[in-house]
C-alpha cells in the first residue's frame, strides 16, 4: 500500500496521568448487574417496613393529631369494619368492574390499532397526528361532556377509563413494534411469507410480551381515572368511599381506602407479571 498518511511523532502530553486509578468494586452500587438475592429481599422488606414504622412512630408519639394521622391499628380496624359491614367488598366490586370494563375496551382497540400503526408507516402517518393531539387532552377534562352525554350511571365512568387509557396503550403497543428486527421480517419474506403472515405470525408474537407489560404499566392510570370519576358522582366505589369519609372527617377510612387501592393495584401488577412469565417463557430471562 502506498497511500499511508504519515503519522506524526510524539502525541501531545495533555496531563500527567499519575498512578493508575481503578474503579473500586461495590455491591450496593452495582450497575447493570443483579445484586445478591438476600440483599435484594432485605431492601424490599425495608421499602415497606420503614414507611410503616415511621407512620406508626408519628402516630403514636402524638406529634400529629390523630384526626390527621390515624395509627396503623386504627386503619386496620377501619378496614375490618368496612369489610364486615359489606361496604368494602361492594366498593371494590364496583370500582374493579369500571376499571376492567374501560381498560378491557381500551386494550381490545389499542392492540390492533397500535400493531397496525407500528407495522405500516402509512397507517402511522394516517393516525399518529390525531392520536398525538387527543393524547394531550387530559381525560378528566372529558368528565363534564361524559356526564352531559351519558348521565351519572356506569357508562360515563367506564368511558372515562377507556378514553384515559386508549391512547397510551395504542402508542406504547405501536412503539413495541419498533423492536422487531428488520432482518427477522426480511428472513420471513425469503421463507415465502407474505405481509399478512409477517403481521400475524412474526410481528404479533414478537410484541406480545411488550403488550402485556404495557397493560401492566397503564393499569395504574386506569385506577387514577376511576377514582376521579367516583369522586365526582357515584353512590359506591372506593373513590366514593374516600370522598364520603372526608366529609365526615373519618381519616381512618380515607387511609383504609388508599391502602386497599394500593394492595389491589399491587395484586394486579403481580398477576400481569405472572401471566407474562407463564405465556411468554421465551421472553423471560
Amino acid at each position: 500500500m502506498t497511500s499511508h498518511v504519515p503519522i506524526p511523532h510524539n502525541p501531545p502530553l495533555v496531563r500527567d496521568p499519575g498512578p493508575a486509578r481503578m474503579l473500586r468494586p461495590s455491591t450496593f452500587w452495582t450497575i447493570a448487574d443483579p445484586i445478591p438475592s438476600r440483599l435484594s429481599w432485605l431492601l424490599m422488606g425495608l421499602s415497606i417496613g420503614v414507611p410503616l414504622v415511621l407512620w406508626w412512630l408519628l402516630a403514636s408519639t402524638g406529634w400529629v393529631r390523630p384526626l390527621f394521622l390515624p395509627s396503623p391499628a386504627q386503619v386496620v380496624g377501619a378496614i375490618g369494619q368496612l369489610w364486615n359491614s359489606g361496604a368494602l367488598p361492594k366498593d371494590i366490586q364496583f370500582s374493579l368492574m369500571r376499571i376492567l370494563g374501560g381498560f378491557a375496551l381500551a386494550t381490545v382497540i389499542a392492540i390492533p390499532l397500535g400493531t397496525l400503526m407500528g407495522t405500516f408507516a402509512s397507517i402511522r402517518s394516517l393516525l399518529e397526528p390525531i392520536v398525538g393531539i387527543v393524547r394531550y387532552m387530559p381525560a378528566t377534562a372529558f368528565i363534564p361532556l361524559l356526564i352531559l352525554y351519558f348521565g351519572l350511571g356506569e357508562v360515563p365512568k367506564i368511558l372515562l377509563v377507556f378514553i384515559g387509557t386508549l391512547f397510551f396503550n395504542t402508542l406504547m403497543v405501536m412503539d413495541s413494534v419498533k423492536f422487531v428486527p428488520k432482518k427477522m421480517i426480511e428472513a420471513t419474506y425469503t421463507l415465502g411469507g407474505n405481509r399478512l403472515q409477517v403481521l400475524f405470525q412474526v410481528i404479533f408474537p414478537y410484541i406480545t410480551p411488550g403488550i402485556i407489560d404495557t397493560c401492566r404499566v397503564n393499569m395504574a392510570a386506569a385506577w387514577n381515572l376511576v377514582i376521579v370519576s367516583e369522586l365526582v358522582a357515584a353512590t359506591e366505589g372506593l373513590g366514593r368511599r374516600i370522598s364520603v369519609a372526608q366529609r365526615f372527617l373519618k381519616t381512618d377510612e380515607i387511609f383504609a381506602g388508599l391502602i386497599v387501592i394500593g394492595l389491589i393495584g399491587l395484586a394486579i401488577d403481580i398477576l400481569f407479571r405472572m401471566f407474562l412469565r407463564f405465556s411468554c417463557r421465551w421472553a423471560v430471562k
Binding site: P181, M184, E186, Y189, T190, V202, P205, W282
Partner: peptide
Amino acid sequence: TGPGADRGMVFQSYTLYPW
C-alpha cells in the same frame, strides 16, 4: 421482482424466531 422462497437467505444474526 421481490423476495420468495425460491431464494433462501441466511443473515449474519438476529433472525431466528425467539418464541
